[in-house]
Computed example of a mutant assay.
Amino acid sequence: MADAQRTSEPTNFVHQDEIWKAHVKAEKHLAKDWPNKWGFLEETYKEYEKESLKLKEEARTKLPHHLTARPPTPPEKHIHVSPSPSVPKTTQAFIGWRSAHSDLQLEKADTLHHGRRSFLKELGWPLHSCS
């Protein structure tokens, strides 16, 4: 491919055509010989497909009720956004103008609970047992 992009050397179209003919001839020869050498793979693949379809059907019928997909919950049920206050006149006041109003409730202000327990203490193991 890099040879075709060169502009300084002349292109030998006859030679490139002969190369192309050799490639096509090799492809035809290999396509003719493929079923004799690798044809057994077709039947193995067909058996695999049948078995995988059978397994998929079994999985669909045996799926428990609690694992089935539920319809999506509409976002309006959980997200409530009040109308915005008037837009500020300056660009400096524009930064964070919605979050400054506490009545808009843009962020959920829950307390974060970080774990203060030790897994090793819960198991009754010495603290230096895992390092």
Rank of each mutant, 00 (worst) to 15 (best):
P35V: 12
A100D: 13
V14Q: 07
K32P: 06
T111R: 13
E47S: 11
H101N: 10
E18V: 00
W34S: 11
L30S: 04
P74M: 11
P75L: 09
K54T: 08
P74Y: 08
R6Q: 03
W20C: 04
A69I: 10
T68W: 04
H23P: 00
Q16Y: 03
H23Q: 02
E57P: 05
P72M: 11
A31K: 11
K28V: 01
L41Y: 14
S99V: 08
S99P: 04
D103Q: 14
G96F: 10
E49W: 07
P10Q: 00
H15M: 04
K25M: 01
E42P: 01
E43H: 11
A59P: 03
L53R: 08
G96M: 09
G39N: 14
D17I: 02
Q105E: 13
E47D: 14
S99E: 12
K46C: 06
K77Y: 14
D103L: 07
N12A: 05
P75Q: 06
L55S: 06
K28T: 02
P71F: 05
L67G: 00
H78M: 13
Q5H: 02
E107G: 12
T73P: 09
L112P: 07
K28E: 03
T11E: 01
P83H: 12
F40Q: 12
P64K: 03
W20F: 03
K28A: 01
T73S: 10
R98T: 13
S52K: 15
K54Q: 06
Q105F: 08
P35Y: 11
P72I: 09
K32G: 07
T7Y: 05
W34I: 13
S8M: 01
E49G: 07
V24A: 00
S84M: 10
W38I: 12
P64I: 05
R60S: 02
P85L: 09
E57R: 06
V87G: 07
V87W: 13
Y45G: 14
T11A: 02
N12G: 01
K37H: 12
P75T: 06
S52E: 08
P10M: 00
L67F: 00
A93Y: 08
K21L: 01
T11L: 03
T68F: 05
H78C: 13
K50R: 09
T61D: 02
F13Q: 03
A100S: 15
W38H: 14
L55R: 05
Q5F: 04
R6F: 02
K37D: 13
A100G: 10
L53Y: 06
